[in-house]
């Protein structure tokens, strides 16, 4: 086989592999689609330490998960269900804070750090016409 043919073959194989992996992403098992499971992971177990009601085996967590399941069954939206718990326990019951004015910095600070840091790195490059180090 000529050098050129081998190169082309290598590329074809590589692209085939990429296609297979992409297919794997799309066709693989979906990540947990169970709404009760997903919602449970976003609600804190009040009697535990940092665990969600989905993880905790405590009675309180089980009872709360039952309530979640009932409400899912009754066709309530995720936001309605989270709201139900927030109204009773306060925002502290959410492990996943909502995006609102007072929690905005949670997302904005890391984003600012990413952008600011990126700009700082960008400014470190040698500008055209400067002496190489």
């Amino acid at each position: 086989m000529s050098e050129r043919a081998r190169k082309i073959a290598a590329w074809v194989v590589t692209l085939g592999l990429v296609a297979t992996v992409v297919w794997g992403f799309l066709a693989g098992e979906p990540t947990e689609s169970d709404r009760v499971f997903a919602l449970g992971a976003r609600i804190k177990c009040p009697v535990c330490q940092g665990e969600s009601i989905q993880e905790s085996p405590s009675e309180t967590a089980m009872a709360m998960l039952d309530v979640v399941a009932e409400k899912v069954e009754a066709g309530q939206t995720d936001e309605q269900i989270l709201e139900y718990f927030t109204d009773r326990y306060g925002d502290g019951i959410r492990l996943d804070p909502r995006f609102e004015f007072r929690t905005m910095l949670l997302w904005l600070l890391p984003a600012a750090a990413l952008i600011g840091g990126g700009l700082m790195i960008w400014s470190r490059r040698r500008r055209p016409g400067e002496e190489p180090s």
């Binding site: 976003r42 996943d96 804070p97």
Partner: peptide, 23 residues
């Protein structure tokens, strides 16, 4: 930020916000 922010919110508003695994 995720660790300290709840303290900050509680100081400003008196409310507890939870920042946990999903975040």
């Amino acid at each position: 930020v995720g660790t300290l922010y709840p303290l900050f919110v509680e100081w400003r508003t008196g409310d507890q916000v939870g920042v946990g695994r999903p975040f």
